[in-house]
Write a protein that binds this DNA or RNA. Structure first.
Length: 576
DNA sequence: ACGCAATGACTCC
DNA sequence: TGGAGTCCCTTGCG
């Protein structure tokens, strides 16, 4: 039983685990204006006792059990005669749980969690991210889930039939860790997807939340094109027509699939799920999942109501009726055709499932397998060569790996705890395979929670060995202080493309690695600050020294903003 | 330096 | 089942 998938991460306010709140008593900040000003809506604290300035306040049973009725009262009291006394709270209140005695938020570059909440990383109660056993630390990889398929007959099948197809020799692994170039003026809104051109080696395509399509030659940096008329809102997915790589298929939340001629920018709609226009969010269909069955010339598209559509690529005709592949009314977040057997389809959805289908025999009940997850599944991909593995990214902060799709799929072969939480303002994180990795183990994914790197809170891009859960490398740069949810590895070259907020970055390996050397964990952190050419971010930054400052806002340290417009070759030069 | 908005899943009633 | 309210590490702008 896929027990972990069942885990409910209830945020139980009445739970009182005060065990972990050690360190919250040293840096006494001024009290946060924002939290006090919100006294009208946050319930709980009744008037009078607010006046205590600080101090031991652990035992506040009542504060937890705040009555909803009491919540409404201040406003009602305000206009309804009974004038509540105006109180000014001078005691420090946790902005998360509104209790005193601790404070959540950044202290310098370190984020202090609210100890009343489950761990922000693994979602288990009783500790915070700072002490989480799954925490990504300098020398420790992500810890794999203990459960593995061991010694079953399926393992025998796996060993005898599949393993041979997967190279056990891990190839030389170069971490693209040096910022080659970047561009922060390309997109006006956050980047939502990236794709390398399949044949033009240095061309990267990008889509953003506004529907803008960007084409960028990151070697000839002046060659940039944007097409803003392809879609009217979020560009969710891009696929090349393998028979004609001058044509790009794009899927959007505007409910259309477009095939765009990359030379002219002229797009022809292949499918429009909202032919009658806008009549409210309850009927507006958005498209997130799309893939191409190249053998059959079949375009597979899924909407935000759980339906799958099949489309003949050439005739542009729909094939059959839409088929419900996920819970009715729920978003299908992604589709992927098996690279070895294109008729096998993997779908992932907001209904907390990923499903495997045979597109030749589609019926709502005909899923070959349903893979249960703890929360929304952001993405699911077959492994890029053999197609025998599945990797999913789920909003419960776990990457799940199934080693053999024809084996026992009841529970994943591995769960890798990794911070890639859902945040409505971010493009969803998706762990992506390295297409160059014969052994089908390396994956790349951005990290949500920050780490303190020499006084700067940065969000690295993680390379993970999915066969062990080990963290192979973490890539970051002091100039990139934003989260990087979108990452794509080049199909042939050692290049990483990153979409971070509105910016796009290209990374290349800094050092040649001895080809005979086994893949090892590379300390990219050392690179970041170890090289003499780099400035330490410390003294440079805006206001504050390392420890307080943050007040209400996180992001204590913003590294100096660097504009990579053109000709940003290598790091140093690009800086003004 | 602060306030705010954009905006999606989830929970609770 | 549905609508309102809530929400922890966002980001950029005014």
């Amino acid at each position: 039983m896929a027990a972990p998938a069942r885990a409910r991460f209830v945020h139980n306010r009445s739970r009182r685990r005060a065990d972990e709140d050690d360190s919250d008593d040293e840096g006494h900040q001024r009290q946060d204006a924002s939290s006090s000003s919100s006294s009208d809506d946050d319930g709980g604290e009744e008037e009078e006792e607010e006046m205590e300035v600080e101090g031991s306040d652990e035992e506040e049973e009542e504060a937890v059990a705040d009555e909803p009725a009491a919540r409404e009262s201040p406003a009602a009291a305000g206009r309804g005669g009974r004038k509540g006394p105006i109180t000014i709270s001078l005691k420090k209140v946790c902005k998360v749980c509104k209790k005193t005695g601790h404070e959540a938020g950044f202290k310098g570059a370190v984020y202090i969690d609210c100890p009343m909440k489950p761990c922000f990383l693994c979602k288990m109660p009783g500790h915070t991210t700072l002490t989480c056993p799954h925490r990504v630390a300098m020398e420790h990889g992500v810890i794999p889930a203990p459960r593995r398929n061991t010694n079953t007959s399926l393992d025998y099948v796996f060993q005898s039939q599949v393993k041979g197809k997967i190279s056990m020799v891990k190839p030389r692994f170069l971490v693209p860790n040096q910022l080659e170039c970047g561009n922060i003026k390309f997109h006006q809104r956050r980047v939502t997807c990236l794709e390398f051109h399949p044949t033009k080696n240095n061309v990267l395509l990008s889509g953003d939340k506004k529907g803008l399509l960007g084409i960028w030659d990151y070697v000839k940096l002046h060659e940039k094109i944007t097409y803003d008329s392809v879609h009217s809102c979020i560009l969710n997915s891009m696929k090349f027509d393998t028979a004609n790589d001058g044509v790009l298929y794009t899927a959007s939340s505007d409910g259309t699939i477009s095939s765009t001629d990359l030379d002219t920018g002229i797009g022809a709609p292949l499918l429009n799920l909202n032919p009658d226009g806008w009549s409210g969010p309850s009927t507006w269909r958005m498209i997130y999942g799309m893939d191409l069955n190249t053998e059959k010339g079949l375009l597979l598209v899924a909407d935000s109501f759980g339906f799958l559509y099949l489309l003949d690529r050439r005739s542009k005709e729909r094939i059959g009726q839409p088929i419900l592949i996920h819970k009715k009314g729920s978003k299908v977040t992604g589709l992927h055709c098996n690279p070895a057997q294109p008729e096998v389809l993997l779908s992932s959805g907001n209904d907390h499932f990923a499903r495997i289908w045979d597109t030749r025999k589609l019926d709502p009940k005909s899923a070959l397998a349903s893979l249960a997850h703890g929360r929304v599944v952001n993405s699911g991909y077959f492994s890029p060569r053999s197609g025998n593995k599945i990797m999913t990214t789920c909003q419960d902060n776990r990457i799940r790996v199934w080693d053999y799709i024809f084996g026992n799929l009841e529970s994943p072969s591995r769960e890798i705890v990794h911070s890639h939480d859902f945040n409505r303002h971010l493009t969803p994180f998706k762990a992506e395979w390295d297409p160059k990795d014969y052994s089908e183990t390396v994956a790349v994914i951005g990290r949500y929670i920050s780490e303190n790197y020499n006084g700067v809170a940065l969000h690295p891009i993680d390379f993970i060995d999915t066969s062990t859960g080990k963290l192979l490398a973490e890539v970051m740069d002091p100039d990139i202080t934003t989260i990087s949810p979108v990452n794509k590895l080049h199909p042939q070259d050692d290049i990483l493309a990153t979409g971070s907020s509105r910016s796009i970055f290209i990374w290349k390996p800094k050092n040649e690695v001895d080809p005979t050397e086994e893949r090892t964990s590379q300390k990219v952190k050392e690179y970041v600050y170890g090289s003499g050419s780099r400035k330490k971010p410390n003294g440079k930054h805006d206001n504050s020294s390392d420890d307080d400052s943050d007040g209400g806002g996180g992001k204590s340290k913003k590294a100096k903003k660097t504009r990579f417009t053109h000709t940003a070759k290598g790091k140093g030069k690009s800086k003004a």
